[in-house]
């Protein structure tokens, strides 16, 4: 089954072409990755898919339904949820509340429900809290539930953002450079968590610089350079690809991985 399909995606900012005619599809099973050197147009691609910046040309299909040009909140409601390169946590709220906010699209209570608290609202609140604790355990932040999000070390903030995104019960989770700024050990742990999420049935698509993470975690890789797709395939296929090695300046970075 195809989870995500993009066709001829192009994004122009005035004269600058950030993405040009990018076409690929992502299977529902497994972890996929979009890689490429700095300025290859990875984040722009993410923004087009998640609705934050509609494409100049081309179409996006999620579960074979077109979502091109929909608002981000609409796309999120359908089950496609992203994280950000610079973590966008709700800093003044507790770790638990951050995740509870993520349950928004899967819960229903409104203003009247909040004021009158009928039984179904109280049940919903209890389930929201319970599910949020489970997700914190999934990323290993169970003990930090009551801490303020801003007091977490950077690596844990990234994990919290993943837990919060998972709270929406996404079918496709898109992670924008989740390993940026993480040390070796934290990256290792992140890799395990991404595999866990994938095993639990959520499709994962990541943008990543960290080759170790990509090669260890991804089943399928799309390579961008100067806004164009230059290669696509399994990690071993990508590592052997001439164009990819050239894009990475002789490929030292690739060979290290």
């Amino acid at each position: 089954m195809i989870r995500l399909r993009v066709e001829h995606l192009t994004k122009r900012f005035g004269g600058l072409v950030a993405n040009s005619d990018v076409t690929f599809s992502i299977n529902a099973a497994g972890v996929s990755a979009v890689i490429g050197p700095n300025g290859a147009g990875k984040t722009t691609l993410f923004n087009m898919i998640s609705g934050f910046s509609p494409p100049t040309e081309g179409r996006v299909f999620f579960n074979e339904q077109e979502i091109t040009g929909l608002e981000p909140e609409e796309i999120a409601t359908r089950g496609l949820v992203r994280t950000f390169q610079l973590t966008q946590l709700f800093q003044n709220q507790s770790v638990l509340e951050n995740v509870m906010i993520g349950r928004h699209v899967r819960t229903k209570a409104g203003v009247i429900g909040a004021l009158l608290r009928p039984r179904w609202v109280r049940d919903e609140e209890r389930q929201t809290e319970q599910r949020s604790h489970e997700l914190l355990d999934l990323v290993g932040l169970g003990a930090q539930a009551d801490m303020l999000a801003s007091t977490l070390p950077y690596g844990q903030q990234r994990l919290l953002e993943i837990a919060r995104a998972m709270a929406t019960d996404p079918q496709l989770l898109m992670l924008d450079e989740p390993a940026a700024g993480l040390n070796h050990e934290e990256t290792e742990k992140l890799s395990q968590i991404i595999r866990r999420i994938s095993d639990l049935g959520t499709t994962v698509l990541l943008i990543e610089h960290d080759m170790r993470l990509v090669m260890n975690t991804a089943d399928h890789i799309v390579v961008l350079n100067f806004g164009r797709k230059i290669a696509e395939g399994s990690p071993s296929h990508i590592q052997a690809d001439k164009d990819v090695i050239e894009a990475y300046l002789g490929g030292t970075e690739m060979l290290d991985a």
């Binding site: 709700f90 993520g102 229903k108």
Partner: peptide, 19 residues
């Protein structure tokens, strides 16, 4: 849920929309 949505958009509108 209502109040959490408010503090979310107060913290980061982009993150709130992405959720």
């Amino acid at each position: 849920r209502f109040g959490r949505a408010l503090v979310a958009l107060s913290g980061s509108e982009d993150a709130a929309r992405a959720l």
